[in-house]
Every structure is written in structure tokens, then in C-alpha cells.
Design a protein around this nucleic acid. Sequence first.
DNA 1: AAGTGGTCTAGACCACAGT
DNA 2: CTGTGGTCTAGACCACTTA
Lengths: 213, 213
Amino acid sequence: MNTMSSITTKTPPTAEPAYLKIKNHVLSQIQNGVWQEGDLIPTEMALCEQFQVSRMTVNRALRELTGDQLLVRIKGSGTYVAQPKFQSTLIEIRSIAQDIRERGHRHTSRVLQLDTKAASKVQLQRFGLAAGTQLFHSLIIHHDNGIPIQLEDRVVDASIAPDYLKQDWELMTPNEYLMRVAPLPTGDYTIEVRFPLRKSPELWISKQASPVC
Amino acid sequence: MNTMSSITTKTPPTAEPAYLKIKNHVLSQIQNGVWQEGDLIPTEMALCEQFQVSRMTVNRALRELTGDQLLVRIKGSGTYVAQPKFQSTLIEIRSIAQDIRERGHRHTSRVLQLDTKAASKVQLQRFGLAAGTQLFHSLIIHHDNGIPIQLEDRVVDASIAPDYLKQDWELMTPNEYLMRVAPLPTGDYTIEVRFPLRKSPELWISKQASPVC
DNA sequence: AAGTGGTCTAGACCACAGT
DNA sequence: CTGTGGTCTAGACCACTTA
């Protein structure tokens, strides 16, 4: 018997789910500066009472905003407005291997070339390197489920990553290695991407030069 | 009284939450090819029985995987393995304005310079343009809550975006405009980013040349 | 009509932080 | 110790798809 119970006044025809209402409320509090970066925001219980919903609903809203990097939640302490991360404002430098794994695919790679050269005049000028700087050069092909998907042509300042040539690039990608060795890109970073050719979008060519100063 | 109840055999010392176990199970089914792209995967109820958990737990696992683009869920129909999107494998070209708004901040911008020039020899060669190609050049500063955060120095092939100079760049960013005019980057795309200077990470300089062929 | 996912509830136990 | 977030349950109603 689904006859209307006498008490519940549920779902007025607004149609917007409660967890979205809460997300938007939190968002606007932050946008309007009511809650500043680093501030402690109301607890789940407080929001439950304010919105007259159960705790799981508030929890979902706050958890999703945490995933969006807008909030930081600390067990036993509270929920805070996150500091913005400026690192990834314009472009996000990603790991191709991580991307493939996140898609649920198998990532493999093959090293085609690996050598050392002195920086050319163009490179010296372009990245502001000292004359005589040695550069490592690697050419690696990445596969997604066995399909070649990206050809990575990378140049790295030898003084930044002296053990570059000794790595096993079929285990860890240069991106992942350099993130460990020099996690904060403090110098110039240039990425050139050749987008998929019309009609054959399977193979990308990526040139990456990372002579972190 | 928290004496152990006689029935519940909860939380064996594995410590891994149930929703993560389910996520990992789904992931490995996909990675091992048991569930292929486009396949219908078991229903929430089926997974409830398989893992002996409540539906909300299964729902959370599948909902998060949907957010990660690994699954597609259709109300009334079922849950399917998603098709991978290759568009954003290496780098993700983002809208600075969108980024700022997603952080809950206010985005404004000011046009410093806007003009037309013939492509230089270096540009002709670098992007493989026909001699005499006209290029638009814009210099725009982006603010995050009033703080200058990025100086965008962009060069665009005039034949791709003939109305480039007529746009109101304080309403829409060049990125957003070009995504509408030429949504599929079929040619070369070069991005140069000067990362934040040590100690003053507030201002980025970004040069973007987008002469889509 | 039966099945599916989308949402929600009113509880609960736990680990942890800040007294 | 109290309060917080992290997780989980066993139900429930709804909108939608599929047959």
C-alpha cells in the first residue's frame, strides 16, 4: 500500500536532489566569500539539521566536493575549505601510463632509443642552459592493450636526473620518474603535441623537453 | 554496551572498505577482459549478493567508477563498460576561466593587446603554414578574484577564426571561443608554459600558438 | 509488469582529533 | 571524554527501460 503516509511531505516538484542542493549551497558560500580558504565549515550533523536530511545525504555532498578539491576533510577534526592548487591551472601534465591504467587497460612500452648529447645552440638559448650542458634523449613508444598509442620523444637535463639512462623505462615512465626526482617544475616546461592525424587517431607523437633549471 | 553482538562477524582485520573491494573487482574484470567495452555488467542487486553488502555500498562503488569514466549507467537499463576517450590522454587543454570558476572563484580578464600580423618565417616553418598567412595576436591577462594569475599570449591562424578580433574577450576566453570554432584540434598545437618563478608563484606566463591546419 | 538505477532515511559502529 | 568524519545497513520511493 503506497497510499501517502500522513507525515512525509517529500519531493516537492523541485526535482533537484537534496545532495545537489547542499553542494550548491556550499559552493556559493565559498564563492561569496562567506567561507574562506582554510575555514572550518559546519559539521555534517549541523547541515543535516539545516537541510532536514539524513547524514548520508550530507556526507555524499561533502565527499563529492572533496573529490573536486574544494574541501578537505579530516577525520576527528572537521571539514575545511581547501587551498586552491595553482599547479594545474592551464594544463595538466599527466602520466600516460596512469591514464591507460585508469581506463582499465594494460600499459606497456618499448624503448626505441636512449642516448646522451650536448645541448644544441637552440636548446641552450631556448631553455637558458649553461654552455656544455649534457642532455639525455629518450624515444619510447607507449601501448594501450598492445596498440601503439603514443610516441614519446623526451629531452632531459642530465644534471637534474643523472640516473636517467639507468632506469627501466618499461617499468616506470619518464614522467613518473621525473615527478619523483624533481616533483616541482620550477623552470621552463615545453610540451609539443602532434594531435591525431585525421582518420587515424591512434598514434600521437609527443615531444617533451624538461630541462628543469 | 558495545559487547560483541552474537551474530555480526564484521570488519575482519582486512581494513579495506567494502566499496573499494568492489571497485577493484570491477576494475580487474575490465582489465582482464572478462567484461569488454560496451558489455552489460552485473546489476547492483547481483553484486550485493556476491559481496554480501547492502545496495548503497555497491551503488557507491559503481557511481564512483562512473565518475571515472569507466562505466556508463542507464536508469532502467543497466550498467555498461564505457568506451575509452582518447582525446585527453597526454595533456588536457583547459579553460583557465573554467578552472577558476570550479575553484569557486571569480574570473575576470583584461585585453592588453589585439592585432594582426603576417606570420614570420619561423612561424611559417614551425607550423607549416602557407607563405603570407595572417595571424591574429592577443595578449590577455586573467585574474582570479582580482589577482592577476596568468598572462596569455596567443597567436591564431586568421583563416581558422576570421572573427577572432571581433570577440569580447572579457566575456569568453580565446580557449572557449576556439573550442567552439574549431573543436577538434586536427593540426599542431604548441603550448609553452613558464612555471611560477620561485617565491612568487602568482603569475604565470602562457604562450599559446594555435594555427590549426 | 518486472527490473534497473537514482536517491534517501534513521539508525549504527569505527578510528581519530582535541580536549 | 566528546565530537568529528568514514563506512555500512536494510529498508524505501521514484523514474525510467524493457518486454
